[in-house]
Deep mutational scan, measured.
Amino acid sequence: SEEKKKAKERLERLGASSELARELLDRANGNAEKAERLLRKLL
């Protein structure tokens, strides 16, 4: 979806690899905010 694509791009801008961004979104069930929080914990 367009929303998921935007979320993935945002995670990548924050420093996630394409693969990591995809994994985070999967774990967050597509929830962009939750995926971002997970990423911030990792960085």
Rank of each mutant, 00 (worst) to 15 (best):
K41R: 15
K8W: 15
K4H: 15
E9D: 08
E23S: 10
A32M: 13
K6V: 09
G15V: 03
L38V: 05
E36I: 15
E3D: 12
A21M: 04
N29I: 03
E12C: 14
R13L: 11
E2K: 09
S17F: 04
R22F: 08
R27I: 12
R40E: 08
A16Q: 02
R40F: 09
R37E: 15
E36K: 06
D26W: 14
R40V: 07
L42P: 01
L14Q: 05
A32T: 07
A35W: 03
K8R: 15
R40M: 13
A21E: 01
S17G: 05
A16M: 03
N29W: 07
L43P: 01
L43V: 05
S17P: 05
L20G: 01
R10F: 08
N31T: 02
E9R: 10
K4P: 07
A21G: 01
E19P: 04
K34P: 01
K34R: 12
A28L: 06
R13E: 09
R13G: 07
E9T: 08
L42E: 03
L43D: 02
L14C: 06
L39A: 01
S1I: 12
K41W: 15
A35S: 02
L14N: 02
E33R: 14
L11G: 00
E2H: 10
R27Q: 11
S17A: 04
R10H: 08
G30T: 01
L24V: 04
K41P: 00
R27D: 04
K41D: 09
S18G: 07
R13N: 07
E12Y: 06
A16V: 06
D26G: 07
L24M: 05
R22S: 12
L11Y: 02
R13T: 07
R13M: 12
L25S: 02
L14K: 03
L11E: 00
R40D: 05
E9V: 07
G30C: 07
E33H: 10
E9M: 08
L11D: 00
K34H: 13
E36F: 08
R27L: 14
E2D: 13
L43H: 05
R37Y: 11
N31D: 15
G15K: 02
S1N: 12
K41A: 12
L43I: 07
N29K: 10
S18I: 06
L43A: 04
E36G: 04
E19L: 08
A28W: 05
A16R: 02
K6N: 10
G30M: 06
L38R: 04
A7T: 06
L39M: 04
A35N: 01
L43G: 03
N31W: 06
A21V: 06
A28K: 01
N31R: 03
K4Y: 15
L24E: 00
N31F: 04
R10I: 07
D26Y: 13
E9Q: 13
L11I: 03
A21H: 01
E3P: 08
E23A: 14
A28M: 09
A21T: 03
G15F: 05
K5P: 06
L20D: 01
K6C: 10
R40I: 10
L20H: 02
S1Q: 12
K34M: 15
R22G: 09
E23C: 15
A7I: 11
L24R: 00
S18F: 06
L38N: 04
E36M: 14
L24N: 00
K5N: 13
N31K: 03
A21Y: 05
N29H: 11
L25V: 06
K5F: 09
K41S: 09
K34S: 08
E33G: 07
E2N: 11
L39V: 00
R37L: 13
G30W: 14
R40N: 06
